[in-house]
Design a protein around this nucleic acid. Structure first.
Lengths: 245, 245
DNA sequence: CTCGCGGAATTTGTAATATAAATAGGATTA
DNA sequence: TAATCCTATTTATATTACAAATTCCGCGAG
């Protein structure tokens, strides 16, 4: 995994700074430090520190110039669709606004992905969908945590679409789905995901019914979106941070 | 601009390596070089070179380990939605497949963005849409290049949606739109974009007609998608590379 | 007093070198 | 043959030095 595993120093600093930045830890009255200070703060050499800063720059979080120092980019320049950035945001600064916007993305994309999957998914991709839905049902029967198979199902559909951008979203999606679904299930007061609703989607895809898959997916995600809006307007506290792994 | 302006050595190397990677310039028989060789090749110090490699790592293109060297990640790990990565891909290795997949994304997202814009766009956002459509009409009358205002229109709609992910896509979209629209216009044999079709969208948004905006947008983009598929099946040569700026 | 100019100071950019850590691959030995 | 150790290679980290960009301040001319 080339992710920020925290194995080596550079990635640990990327992680720490990335979280601090998206959490709003730097501002006008607490500007982003200069290299020398960051070195002291993290007890790292200038090399590693600069490499970490460069990685965050590549993700649109930072920018630097000689004599002016390094500063946090305005939020609209952040690469929100970078898996790391989105994960940091959702884990450290979850908000109904962000969950709603992400649900809107899902509402736009997943039904189309399901339709494409119904039309062109190769056998292996269909098998992955079938496996996921089976495991969901299994978890439901055993009263296990349905979250992993729920996520796996949505990812499998996105991948089965054969569209590289949709597949890409699945990487972005994993952490977002984790939070969305968890919130959804907690709010509903049940730990069960709605197996029948998911089954409807997979049946349609496996049967090659594009329109049915699209409609069923739209219905499922619309429900999730409605739930977020309801929780928001009901004044339910924002979903809490994820515990450190 | 924190983009790869080519201003300083690091960004020039990021650009050069990024392009080489997405163009498929490295493979089993031509593996990614070790740091020492890259330093010689680009006449750069190890510091700069490592910083450039780290930036590409942050975009999912590379991965490295002691003793094993640095290697190109499988394509499914690339951050396709990173503006740099997508631009490199489209400028250097345009293909109908990629254009089609991107059009599918637009088909999923832009109608929803238009609908949201109709519902909640603040006055400034609506003004931006109005300006863009006016300039399109102007360019049409004057027989100027309609491309810039065409792009501006689509970006304005995405931004007006108030959804940060959609706005994000607009950054990603800019270069993709440039190629898509150019291809579209060239293939149609006209340099004119279809002003009436765009006008229909903006009218609906400005009137607060969400459904109308969604439908009109879907129609426009479906047409673009059909065009790509037709050009592909007609065996029209792939869109050519963009000239160096 | 104001404007412009130049020099000093600060901060990132680049270079060069040295050492540590990880690990693949070969040599050695039981 | 198999387990172990050794060595070579490559990235990871640290340190130092200097270059380049740019702000800021002070000084002098008008």
């Amino acid at each position: 995994m080339a992710r920020s595993d925290g194995q080596n120093l550079t990635y640990r600093i990327v992680q720490a700074l990335g979280v601090a930045i998206v959490s709003g830890g730097y501002s006008a009255k607490n500007p982003f430090p200069i290299e020398a200070d960051l070195c002291k703060q993290y007890g790292a050499s200038r090399s590693v520190l600069r490499e970490a800063v460069k990685m965050l720059t590549a993700k649109g979080l930072l920018s630097a110039r000689p004599r002016q120092g390094t500063w946090v980019q305005p939020e609209e320049n952040w690469n929100l669709l970078d898996p790391d950035v989105l994960r940091w945001l959702l884990e450290r600064k979850p908000s109904y606004a962000l969950l709603r916007e992400f649900a809107q993305v899902r509402l736009a994309v997943e039904p189309k992905a399901a339709a494409l999957a119904a039309m062109i998914a190769p056998p292996e991709a269909k098998a992955a969908i079938r496996t996921a839905i089976d495991q969901m049902a299994q978890a439901d029967r055993d009263e296990d945590d349905p979250l992993p198979s729920d996520i796996a199902f949505h990812l499998a559909v996105l991948r089965a679409s054969g569209n590289r951008f949709y597949s890409q979203l699945s990487g972005v999606t994993e952490s977002a789905l984790r939070i969305s679904i968890r919130m959804q299930n907690r709010y509903k007061g049940v730990r069960r995901a709605s197996v029948p609703d998911h089954k409807k989607i997979s049946d349609a895809i496996l049967a090659g019914d594009a329109e049915g898959a699209e409609l069923a997916t739209r219905a499922l995600i619309q429900e999730a979106l409605d739930l977020i809006n309801k929780a928001d307007s009901d004044g339910v506290p924002e979903p809490r941070k994820i515990r450190r792994s």
